[in-house]
Write a protein that binds this DNA or RNA. Structure first.
Lengths: 155, 155
DNA sequence: TATATTTGCATCGCACACGATATAGTCGTG
DNA sequence: CACGACTATATCGTGTGCGATGCAAATATA
């Protein structure tokens, strides 16, 4: 393909990913608003619902987010009484994040959200197999890109 | 799939899209820094390189961004002398955005970026056909999700 | 033509992302 | 034990995204 052609918006692979990401966050909004959550906050809860009491660092590893994003985010969630923050006794540098009753109780209310969102796509004739394939491709890209960006990140 | 299972991070489709989007922006950074551009600013230039002199509204339609995001972004670009903003004479409400010499000249310097980024993936054994397929799937999702969110947006 | 509605853009406030930097705690080595 | 290197978290500044709102110009409608 010509370089001229490659610069056209319609030929960029980066743009659809960027757009779909934002559109998905937008699609989540009405569901998450009912729980008084933002999308990144929901992601933190997803992680904690699987394993209560994780360090900020561990959460960051799972979500590929650095502490300069997570620290304020988690503090806002603490303010909303979704979780607690406690310095570890083993290592005073480590902050252990644990769910409160309230944070834990949201799990039930959120349990139907993934299916609801999936249905928006399936109702518009998207094949479930396409969703699976897409996820598989993206997961492999994460491995490549996360590894590639490790060196430049203040991890 | 059980609801319990669906709430696991590894089973979310939203998370890989969100992550890959951020990782791609991160991968662009070193290339765009050389041109003193951010990623969204680069997107605006992509649009203007195709068609100089567009209204803020038209740019927003192409990038799926609202004026509350675009207005300050475009003003920053004006400050960096990449473009000019002029009220249309036909319709005083409309602001026409046009490239400056400097903004136009960046096109050449940016021309190899898409291929450079693509190579990061291809060098890690990603098949080009997978890239094409992914783009095709995402493009169809954009149609679905953009339409779906039209009602809630302050367009 | 007067007025109500719509449209295009801008501003404000809040919540991310993230590079750069700071700080305190821990560890490794002499 | 001292001290330099490393680690975990936090803070700051800048630039998005976006809902809510404001405002002026254009358009529709009575």
């Amino acid at each position: 393909m010509e370089k001229e052609e490659q610069l056209k918006l319609e030929n960029q692979i980066c743009f659809p990913i960027y757009s779909v990401s934002r559109l998905i966050t937008r699609a989540y909004k009405p569901y998450l608003e009912k729980l008084d959550l933002t999308y990144p906050q929901y992601l933190v809860l997803l992680v904690l619902w699987e394993e209560n009491s994780l360090s900020v660092n561990k959460i960051g590893q799972k979500l590929l987010l650095n502490t300069n994003t997570l620290s304020p985010l988690i503090k806002r969630m603490e303010k909303n009484e979704l979780l607690t923050r406690n310095r570890s006794k083993d290592d005073e540098r480590t902050v252990l994040v644990s769910l409160t009753e309230k944070g834990l109780s949201l799990k039930d209310k959120a349990s139907s959200i993934p299916q609801d969102l999936l249905n928006i796509l399936l109702n518009q004739d998207v094949e479930f197999s396409d969703v699976i394939l897409l996820k598989k491709t993206l997961d492999s890209w994460i491995d490549i890109l996360a590894q590639d960006s490790e060196s430049t990140t203040n991890k």
